[in-house]
Design a protein around this nucleic acid. Structure first.
Lengths: 356, 356
DNA sequence: AGCATTTTTGCATTCGTATGCAATATGGAT
DNA sequence: ATCCATATTGCATACGAATGCAAAAATGCT
């Protein structure tokens, strides 16, 4: 009842004494590849087990100058895409013997406390999902030799790597799909206008439509937010020239838009309106929604992220690397089907037009 | 290009030299409440800024024997309840100047590597959500003076605290609600049968029904899993004596069950069947589902969790504490309404029968 | 100014582990 | 048994910051 102190914990010296060896021997026992005789090692392990010893990662970090911790900054967890990413990141990092220090919420202000904390723990790498970093901060990381990977975002900035999918091609594919479905008027509910992801998706969509002669897209801003997406949907659906086809910048918003369409405007999907989303997130697959959506291959994206980190950590070279993966357009029930171009792969229906 | 080494980073000694003071002075500058003259402090801060110095949290932890890291073990992130919890935990811990080390996936086996890692980082506390801990492990934590809090689960085990809601009363309330709605036959789709949460919810439900003379509840196991819940729903809906009312142990499963009811069995909700869930998770609020559901007050649950941790950390006393909060039954459209007992509070409709 | 307090400072040590180096032990070949 | 190459060990030190202690400086009081 006195205290307020955590119990000290067993140290390598205590184990050493118990095993009748030096502290160095204990250290070497727990250092893979170190020079230690099997017999000594066994003695040490026995003593360690008796005392309940575990190497102190903090002390180790201090001397190796490696924390084996990766900071992950992630916000917007209400979009199931990100929890999925997080779970996969956790899995892979553990496999590489790294720990995941999570920062939720955004890094927005300039001299950010979150960033400070992150640097104080001397993390070995940083993953930024649904968040960016000011240029000063990213340069500071580069200067400190800490690799930074943007997840599902990209930037021109030096020394910051990124993992994305071909958002522009994705947007284009969606445009082509809707055109092939025979639609004649088009709308778009955008994500955050400042995000590269949103810009690219829209650019591709617009290109595809423009090539077919459709230059007027009805655009409203949803900012990747449910409530804003609902508001945007209401504006679009209330128009006399309501579009026949609507691309919503991600599924998280598309779900909300579909509810507005059906329950506030009495629209039948896809008879009255076709809706296409992006991410192929959990709810997109639920029967109530069945959203036709561009897939983002989370597993491969996370693999790429981790591999960039591992590579840069072990080489010490922080040269920006940009991995861009392919997605697929999964066809479900939220949009009218084109006559051709739909193929079935592993039980999923994809849109793969067979042009040159 | 040679290297593979992280840049060493600025140390307190370098700052000290630059500022013309001792290393101690630098340390005291960054230690709140330490004895340092304002003038000296200013000099140090200036020098620190010039050099880009940040205290090394690792080195600090080593000597203070406090990592200011809380380990959070969480699985089952596809249930949006948990990402919500995680976000809130992150927010509160940062406010208390703690960091969040996340472990995804379950702790199942006995001598678990995850647990080892967690102990190696000398975390100051542990939060277990959607996961438990074997008795040996929890005792080991207690012995090491590390507080452990179970989130949304409980246990009889000494030295492990817990935060839950009144699941039994919740189940009972749901039973009463369905009875008041005039239903005559009842079903239950269970969560993990080993979880305290599931046991308590079902116990309360059964009690309420038994008191009204209904002893036969049709039960199928969903294990808190979407696919299993769908299978369970199919079994129940295919019965000739399909129940009029169905309590699904959480919303994550209830969503799946509703889709099966509507799209595979053509059932109208709530005309043909009433469905009630638990958690009041995001999708429960979406118009397509509108699930009548027992709320779990995430914010207050997280507050309780953090406050238990902070208290035990600062006192050094690891005495198991069990906080049990109240939930409310939010009434939406997935279940037939009783004639009385529905009140509106802050725009939400709640079921609050006015019995003694 | 002189003395007593209080505040501020620097010194030296400590936390628990890793590692270069020199010393010692081991094994093999002769 | 002797010698040499190799494997293993312990010693001593370093990592970066916090802190008890004593010395030094600043302040208050008469």
């Amino acid at each position: 009842m006195d205290s307020g102190v955590k119990k000290p914990g067993v140290t390598s010296s205590q184990v050493a004494r118990r095993a009748g060896v030096s502290q160095s021997a204990v250290s070497r026992t727990f250092t893979p590849g170190a020079s230690i005789a099997p017999k000594t090692r066994a003695k040490v392990l026995a003593a360690a087990k008796e005392l309940g010893y575990r190497p102190n990662a903090i002390a180790r970090s201090l001397i190796t100058n490696r924390s084996r911790i990766i900071a992950v900054v992630m916000a917007y967890l209400e979009n199931l895409f990100y929890p999925d990413v997080l779970e996969e990141l956790g899995r892979l990092l553990v496999k590489e013997n790294y720990r995941l220090l999570l920062f939720t919420g955004f890094i927005d202000r300039n001299s950010d406390p979150v960033f400070d904390q992150l640097m104080q723990y001397r993390v070995d790498g940083i993953v930024l999902a649904s968040t960016s970093l000011s240029s000063e901060l990213s340069e500071e990381c580069a200067a400190a030799g800490i690799p930074v990977v943007l997840f599902n975002r990209t930037t021109e900035r030096d020394a910051v790597s990124s993992v994305t999918t071909r958002n522009r091609e994705g947007g284009r594919r969606i445009g082509e799909f809707l055109l092939a479905g025979g639609h004649k008027s088009f709308g778009y509910i955008s994500g955050l206008e400042s995000s590269s992801t949103n810009r690219d998706r829209f650019a591709g969509y617009r290109e595809a439509l423009a090539e077919a002669g459709y230059d007027d897209i009805i655009v409203e801003v949803g900012n990747y937010d449910r409530a804003e997406a609902e508001a945007a949907a209401r504006k679009i659906f209330a128009r006399p020239d309501r579009p026949e086809a609507l691309f919503v910048a991600n599924d998280h918003m598309a779900v909300a838009v579909m509810d507005v369409a059906r329950y506030e405007f009495g629209l039948a999907i896809p008879q009255d309106i076709s809706i296409v989303g992006y991410d192929d997130v959990g709810p997109a697959r639920w029967t109530s929604y069945g959203i036709t959506s561009m897939t983002q291959p989370i597993k491969r994206m996370v693999e790429a992220t981790v591999s960039i980190l591992m590579e840069q950590i072990s080489s010490g070279e922080i040269e920006a690397e940009h991995r861009i993966l392919n997605g697929e357009l999964v066809v479900r029930t939220s949009a009218r089907l084109p006559k051709t171009g739909i193929v079935e792969v592993d039980g999923r229906r994809l849109y793969k037009p067979s042009k040159s």
